[in-house]
Amino acid sequence: MVLNVYTFSVIFSLIFLLVVTDFVRKGTLSEQHSLFWFIFALAMLLLAANSRLLEFLSRLLHIYYAPSVLFLFGFLLITIYSFHLTIIVSRQSEKLLKLTQEIALLKNKIEEQADKTVKSK
């Protein structure tokens, strides 16, 4: 086996699949978010292990250097995923804001109640 862009990508995808599985198994990564990485690694594996498919795709897109399809594919998926992540981050900061306010209001309520019981004694 020669080490070229294809074999390297295949090996990388396989190792990456194992790493993702292990992280989900340990509970460090949620199943929800692992789904993208599984699809990503499997698609990468399929493309890299199948140079005829890659050549077909490169002709379709008028790309002269077939491995560029791999780069394009990786780049596009990563772009989409970081977009998805920023949406998640925005949603989370909104929740965090709401939670912080809620806790502050609760704290205030508890303090007011404590004051009342002290005064009534």
Partner: peptide, 17 residues
């Protein structure tokens, strides 16, 4: 579709725990 994949994945991974 997401539901099917996510749940199946979670079930298979639970077997590895």
């Amino acid at each position: 579709v997401y539901y099917m994949f996510k749940v199946s994945l979670a079930m298979v991974i639970d077997c590895l725990r």
